[in-house]
Amino acid sequence: MDWTSAQLRALVELTRRGTITAVAEALGYTPGGVSQQIAALEKATGMQLLRRVGRRVELTDAGTTLALHAERILTTEAEAVEALERTRNEISGTLRIGLFATAAAEILPPALRRIRELHPGVTVRSRDMDVDEVYDAVVGGGVDLALGLDYPDVPIPRDPSLRVRELFRERFSLAVPAGAMPGRRRVSLADAGEQGWILPSVGSYYGRAVLTACRRAGFEPQVLHEVTDTAATLALVESGVGVSVVTDLMLRLRPSRLDVLELQETMERHIVVVFRSFAEDRPTVAALVDVLRACADRTPPGAREG
């Protein structure tokens, strides 16, 4: 059969996510691009793989059968890449890494500089994505490894096919408009219980983690602005419309005139690197993970190693 890995990956992701739009977001394509991949796969197999059911699509029996085999084909392909890398005298090859905004700005650049110094034959291609999507992107083979976040209060479900390595931990502080709590340096979350809050959706791991911490402190946060973007959150706090929790890495994304108060409660997030278990000994993956962990030894102010 004359098919491509990209076509098979699109089909496999469709079984996981259910919609063309969700597959497009996971793989970094447009919905039209995903539809073209599936159409090309149908042409290659000579069989209908999808059918329309109202506004949704579902796999035909042929599509379901091929998707099961496609997962094994993609896994075998990834293992073959690892085996070929091992035959080289030097560590070289191309890696695809998924990452979120803070990682793109603060964590990846020094790691890229270091990997070029140590292993000039390694090419790293990065893709910005929603932090809650990076685990699925690694499982599905959309990226080879990813930088992600984990929260002790709302831990990310662990897929047995993945390896998760903690790089370092960050403690949250409370960001308030300048002068909103004069004379205070250390506060409880409950001290901001009557304030308006700027938080991500409770559908996100981050949003649920903050909500859990607030409830443990004895109050339900009044969310006035549901915002995911860190820079936008800092701008809103600076403008005086609400409070939020922040880490040092988050604060470095946007210089802002606001007050940052230490929290009495311990509220953390863990920066992790995620990759598939069978790629643990792949030379390029191992090299980049080692570099990321070495960079984590020079953790940013306020963070500590895991």
Rank of each mutant, 00 (worst) to 15 (best):
P110S: 10
G54H: 11
G142K: 01
N89H: 09
A137N: 02
V124K: 04
G28R: 08
P109M: 11
P157L: 07
L145G: 04
L236M: 15
E71T: 09
R184M: 13
D136S: 12
G207N: 08
A286H: 08
S92M: 09
P200C: 09
A217K: 10
V285R: 05
C295N: 12
S204R: 09
A213Y: 03
R254V: 04
L288E: 03
L174Q: 06
G196T: 08
L236S: 04
H119I: 02
I198E: 06
G98H: 03
R86Q: 15
A10N: 00
V23M: 01
A180F: 11
R17S: 05
T75Q: 13
I156F: 06
L149T: 02
S92C: 08
Y205S: 14
G183V: 01
T123R: 15
L99R: 12
V143T: 11
V291M: 07
P157G: 08
G18N: 01
E42W: 03
A175R: 04
T75L: 13
R216H: 13
R252E: 14
L199C: 12
W197Q: 07
T284S: 15
L249F: 01
A44H: 07
L118D: 10
Q7E: 07
A111R: 01
V122H: 07
R185S: 14
E305I: 13
V246N: 06
E305K: 15
V34F: 06
E82G: 05
T102Q: 12
T19A: 09
D144T: 05
R293N: 00
V223Q: 08
V260S: 08
T30G: 13
E166K: 13
V245L: 15
D144G: 12
W3P: 00
L162P: 02
T123N: 07
R184D: 00
R127H: 07
I91F: 08
S256Y: 06
R282L: 05
A111S: 14
M267E: 05
E262Y: 00
P182A: 08
A105L: 11
G93E: 04
